[in-house]
Design a protein around this nucleic acid. Structure first.
Length: 469
RNA sequence: CGGGGUGUGGCGCAGCUUGGUUAGCGUGCCUGCUUUGGGAGCAGGAGGUCGCCGGUUCGAAUCCGGCCACCCCGACCA
């Protein structure tokens, strides 16, 4: 039997491929209200892995988790001018409650700088209360005109960190620390290489003095912002009176930060690694790391034993003993779901004391199925999983490098990929011009690649320019 | 807000122009048998107030009026 394409080919219609793979891998579907999303077990399990990994890193860097309310007095948003201006078009407002019109409307949080700032102003009295390092896992609502599952939905899940510090230096250091934590998450958990840089003033978070970003390149070469960290200066401190007494008993404003990663990274995960046959999940976030497919009913017992061996070796393993479903359908289904390693155990294997196994990252990349001795197969996987992670990362990195072009001026920017151009040749006038062609400056970096902390004209930065999601 | 389109089993659609038996098809689902090393075959079966309200008519998925929801384009927004 021949292999028919199970999905629209990425090269034919990438957005269509994206929709189909989410549906067929059973990750998510649209909610009943426009722009909302139902995250199904397979998609949510991926999110839980990301949460666990990131939460650990957030705690390891000294932060404590908290929970602030979904509903915020409208007046709070109004207190910071740029913040209101930036968010008002996408804010959902609650005007009625308990059968009555509310005296003051409540907004559904688009982000929590304001409510948390209000609390910080009460919680912080002395320099001894600093730094205050908070994080919360929450949902937020930003009304969207053109929703897309995971990438842009009206409600999404994220983590938002909020910190207050005595000095600018400490706050900037914190912002960059979390920027690097995100980089670590992208590399080690999601196997996604990103470009780390600072946003231009135009692309900055409303209310921030500096916004740092991680930009990933998707398989269609468009950019996706995978996470952001903001140095908020004293903007929110001024608006909410977040101040403290120094050892000399002087009143001083705090410098605050905020930083977030959302369910959007799942969209990035899909579009970075997925191929024409479905998802390809890095082992760290794969809900099932190895599936054991019993080909015939008579090989179910040995398949179950192998599954147990894998579990004993610390691997998230699952037995597929559904032998009344044709083999091909089951194989295709597990490939769609992106399971990194698949074992196939049939009578032929059993006779030879071996098991067939397929690496999802290599399947369809010119590699044939392999067989390995059944004895010790569990331990073999322990060694293979990190190799799969590395292979996915390297493939993504190679693709980004092949699609990144150095240019000198705007006129050369045409077609696919990332363009590196001298920021001095672009400027904010250039950004406006680029916007007409649907390009944007994704971030600014030093020529050697480091993240610029200050955006001064004399430090000769490179702009990364791309079409973006 | 303006223009266009669509609402019919879980999903995707036909039927409507020209009203008339038990409203079809594909897929999915259930049961059984045969299959099973790359999306199986046959047989049987369950599942629908045809978006909502009203009108015309002996009779409405079909014609008329109103309403609602969703989609696309434009506008707004960035």
């Amino acid at each position: 039997m021949s292999q028919k394409p199970v999905l629209t080919l990425q090269t034919n219609d990438f957005p269509q491929w994206y929709q189909e793979v989410i549906a067929k891998a059973e990750m998510a579907e649209n909610g009943p209200a426009r722009g909302t999303m139902i995250i199904k077990p397979w998609g949510y399990a991926i999110w839980e892995s990301i949460q666990n990994e990131l939460d650990q890193r957030i705690k390891d860097t000294g932060h404590s988790n908290v929970y602030f309310p979904l509903l915020i007095p409208n007046s709070f948003l109004q207190k910071e001018a740029k913040h209101v201006e930036g968010f008002s078009p996408e804010v959902a407002v609650v005007t009625h409650g308990g059968g009555n019109k509310l005296g003051e409307p409540l907004v559904v949080r688009p982000t929590s700088e304001t409510v948390i700032g209000d609390a910080m102003s009460r919680w912080i009295q002395s320099h001894r209360d600093l730094p205050l390092l908070l994080n919360q896992w929450a949902n937020v609502v930003r009304w969207e005109m053109r929703p897309r599952l995971f990438l842009r939905t009206s409600e999404f899940l994220w983590q938002e960190g909020h910190t207050a510090h005595a000095t600018k230096e400490e706050a900037v250091e914190e912002t960059l620390r979390m920027h690097n934590v995100y980089d670590d998450l992208m590399r080690k958990v999601l196997a996604i290489p990103t470009v780390l840089g600072q946003k231009t003033e135009r692309e900055r978070f409303p209310g921030a003095d500096a916004t740092f970003t991680l930009e990933g390149m998707m398989r269609d070469t468009k950019a996706l912002q995978m996470g952001t960290s903001h140095y908020l200066g004293t903007n929110f401190s001024e608006a909410f009176q977040i101040d403290f007494a120094t050892p000399e008993n002087e009143r001083r404003l705090c410098h605050t930060t905020s930083w977030g990663v959302s369910t959007r990274v799942i969209g990035g995960l899909i579009m970075t690694h997925g191929d024409d046959y479905g998802l390809r999940l890095p082992p760290a976030v794969a809900p099932v790391q190895a599936v054991v497919l019993a080909i015939r009913p008579e090989t179910v017992p040995e398949s179950a034993a192998l599954t147990e061996e894998l579990k004993a070796a610390g691997i998230r393993a699952q037995l597929d003993s559904d032998t009344h479903t044709p083999f091909g359908r089951r194989a295709v289904q597990w490939e769609l779901k992106g399971v990194p390693v698949r074992f196939e155990l049939g009578p032929r294997d059993l006779k030879q004391g071996v098991v067939t196994f397929v690496r999802r990252d290599q399947k369809h990349e010119g590699q044939e199925k392999q067989t390995i001795p059944l004895a010790g197969a569990g331990q073999a996987v322990v060694e293979i999983l990190p190799q799969i992670h590395t292979a996915l990362y390297e493939q993504a990195l190679a693709r980004r490098e092949a699609n990144t072009h150095n240019v000198k001026e705007i006129g050369e920017i045409e077609g696919r990929g990332f363009f590196r151009a001298p920021w001095s040749a672009i400027g904010s006038a250039g950004e406006t011009k680029l916007a007409e062609k649907a390009y944007s400056v994704r971030c600014l970096v030093h020529p050697e690649g480091q993240v610029p902390v200050e955006l001064t004209p004399e430090n000769d930065l490179i702009a990364y320019i791309a079409k973006a999601y």
